[in-house]
């Protein structure tokens, strides 16, 4: 029971990484922007969030700065796509490389090369339940887990039950149809990409601020791309993104458990597991996946 509780707890702890990043990509995608820059945004957000948390001595400042860094990447992506007419995928890849470089650069600029690396301030925890095994693992958790739950529910509600959500999805399905009824397609696309990327930034900040307690180069280690896979697997729906995130958090938690328990599986194999699983999931769900119709396509009136 204790071991299981341990695993569930670590699944729930990993879950926000994939949920928040996946959700961020879904939010952009529902407006037609295929945001593959997540890996870069997560790296830069991790670095900036960690540094600001350490230097301000405030966890919240760090988390907010990581979201702001993510939002900046969203703004850049959409600016390149909308104003510079760069293909979304090319802009996305460019931002991955940029973010990877930027994260190490600002870290080295601020911290330099040191033997002692300071830890980020501890993450606020919220306890709302008595210690019931397994169930309490979902609730007696750090503050970001709660933030994640609320984000998923809010995203679902806004997308499907509110006017702005319907307009948001209309832009992703058919920007021309949205345009002719007076919806500002460009503004919706900017907002969706920026807000979505802020969530991706939150996922990036979560890594040093909650998981490792410190920044290490290459900290996102491909999770930004797995998030793209989750968004696709989820058919670009927030609630399914949550399910996909649980799946990948489980894989990561199990891989970690196997690493710790030294059962003789080389750890490189375990590191590979999420990516192999992603391929498997994609192959299994092929044909059942739906995309917003204008996903990845630019829109202009003339």
């Amino acid at each position: 029971m204790n071991a299981l509780d341990e695993i569930v707890r670590s699944i729930v702890t990993y879950m926000p990484i994939y949920t928040l990043s996946g959700l961020g990509i879904v939010i952009g995608g529902r407006a037609g922007i295929f945001n593959i820059s997540g890996e870069g945004a997560m790296m830069a957000a991790a670095s900036a969030g960690y540094l600001s948390a350490v230097f301000m001595g405030n966890w919240y400042v760090g988390f907010l700065i990581s979201m702001a860094m993510g939002a900046l990447f969203g703004l850049l992506l959409e600016f390149l796509h909308e104003e510079m007419k760069v293909n979304q995928f090319i802009a996305g890849i460019a931002l991955v490389i940029f973010g990877t470089g930027l994260s190490d650069f600002i870290y080295k600029l601020v911290v330099g090369i040191k033997f002692y690396i300071p830890d980020a301030p501890p993450t606020p925890e919220i306890k709302i339940m008595p210690d019931i095994p397994i169930l309490s693992a979902f609730f007696n958790q750090n503050i970001v887990v709660y933030f994640t739950y609320i984000s998923v529910i809010a995203a679902y509600y806004i997308m499907y039950k509110t006017r702005i959500g319907i307009e948001h999805r209309a832009v992703g399905e058919d920007p021309r149809a949205a345009d002719v009824v007076g919806i500002n397609v460009k503004m919706v696309r900017y907002l969706a990409t920026i807000i979505g990327s802020a969530f991706i930034g939150a996922a990036g900040g979560y890594l040093p601020l909650v998981i490792t307690g410190t920044y290490t180069p290459g900290i996102a280690s491909g999770r930004g791309f797995i998030a793209v896979g989750i968004a696709i697997f989820a058919s670009w729906r927030p609630e399914r993104t949550f399910l996909g995130a649980i799946l990948f958090a489980t894989i990561e938690a199990i891989a970690l458990q196997m690493q710790v328990s030294e059962i003789g599986v080389p750890y490189q194999f375990l590191l590979m597991l999420p990516f192999v699983s992603l391929l498997l999931v994609m192959a299994l769900f092929k044909g059942k996946i739906e995309h917003p119709s204008s996903l990845g396509k630019p829109y202009s009136r003339e």
Binding site: R163, A178, V181
Partner: peptide, 30 residues
């Protein structure tokens, strides 16, 4: 304007398409 090629969102229902873009429905309501 009724365009020659339909400018309705194919994935939405008829009624959703008709009221799409009407801001008087409220921001967080539909």
């Amino acid at each position: 304007m009724i365009h020659q090629i339909s400018t309705l969102v194919p994935e939405f229902t008829v009624i959703e398409n008709i009221v799409l873009g009407d801001k008087s429905l409220g921001t967080f309501k539909f």
